Simulated scan of single mutants.
Amino acid sequence: MNECGISDPTEISLDLIVFGRGATLVEKQLENSEGRIVFGEKRAIITINSDIAYEGKKRFVIAHELGHFEMHRHHINIHHDTDATLEYFKKGNQETEANEFASELLMPENLFIAECKGRKFGPDLIRDLASRFKTSITSIAYKYFELGDHPICLCYSYDNAVRYWKRPENYPHFMKNLTNLAPPDDSVASEFYQDKRIYRKEYSKQQIWKSTWFELKSWENDNDFKFYEYCIVTPTYNTVLSIIWEEI
């Protein structure tokens, strides 16, 4: 971003950044793909699926493809991205590098920390940050996990099965290992898979038991804790990202 002379990523449209870096941006319908990059002899063409409903997600996909352009032009000729390849939990590959590039381009660390400082965590904050940085709510959740003031845990479910989860280092509560199992029956994620329930904004912060997602020690009582779950649901792909946190 500094090379482009930009201090705030929302000051300039991404298509100008893409063009300035030597690629062409096209928006049209893509089947089974959210973004695509094709490398030619002199330039690359980045194509974004015009069916993406949310502008914030569209911007993140553009930034992700630009990451491929900057870092992987000598390793791939043509590449398609889906919701699976855009998933943050994947580590140690080109998709992770492209996600990290997009994250820092759209949400520079210094600006993100400043926007979070002193603000109480909850769904409203996640949505405010997504609006501030004009990116997807999901990308904000992962960025907040890394840089936010309040410790949160993340659990990603697909097709009614927990695929990945993560908790902060030295977090005092241990998450149950539910990998490849259905989300807990009393979780908000399970409500979507069992009843197709998606909470409206004003009710998206749902109180849960500690024992829903975490191990409850023999001397502990669920009533002594205040845990909450906020789910980012993508019905089209049958995915749920659960954000879980404790209020003290």
Rank of each mutant, 00 (worst) to 15 (best):
E70M: 11
Y199W: 09
R43F: 12
K196Q: 13
R200P: 06
N180I: 06
K57V: 03
G148N: 08
A44G: 06
S103E: 14
M1D: 02
I137N: 01
T236D: 11
N99T: 01
A23M: 13
G118C: 10
T138R: 06
H64C: 10
W209V: 01
D81V: 15
T47D: 13
S211H: 05
L111F: 04
F133K: 07
W219K: 07
T10V: 14
H75S: 04
D149K: 08
Q206D: 00
K196M: 08
S211A: 07
L25S: 03
E87D: 05
L125G: 06
L105W: 06
N99P: 02
L86Q: 01
F19M: 04
D51G: 10
T47N: 09
V162F: 04
I76S: 04
L25A: 02
P108R: 08
S136N: 04
M1W: 08
H80A: 14
V61N: 07
A189K: 05
W209N: 14
I17P: 03
T236M: 09
R119H: 14
S204N: 06
E100F: 00
F39D: 05
S131E: 15
E115S: 14
L16G: 00
P235R: 07
R59G: 06
G35I: 13
E191C: 08
N238Q: 11
D124F: 13
F39T: 02
F133Y: 08
A98M: 05
A114L: 12
Q206M: 10
A102R: 07
F89M: 02
I37Y: 12
A182Q: 10
K176V: 12
Y237H: 14
E202Y: 11
I152Q: 08
M71D: 05
L111M: 05
D159R: 10
K28Y: 09
T179P: 00
Y228L: 05
A141T: 04
I45A: 05
V188T: 09
E31Q: 14
Y193G: 12
P235C: 03
R73I: 06
R197V: 13
I140M: 07
P108Y: 07
W209M: 14
F112G: 05
A161R: 15
G40C: 10
Y54N: 12
E11C: 13
P172D: 00
T179E: 12
P184N: 11
T138C: 00
N177P: 00
N2F: 07
I243T: 11
K91H: 02
I78V: 15
L25D: 03
S50Q: 15
H173F: 15
R21C: 12
T96W: 00
M71I: 07
N93V: 01
K42G: 00
K201A: 13
Y164A: 09
L66K: 09
K58G: 04
W209S: 13
W165H: 11
M175P: 02
S242Y: 07
T135N: 02
Q207H: 14
N223Q: 13
L181V: 00
R127G: 02
F225T: 09
G118S: 11
V162Y: 02
I48G: 11
M1V: 09
G5H: 09
T10H: 12
Q29S: 15
D8M: 09
I62N: 06
W213A: 05
C116N: 03
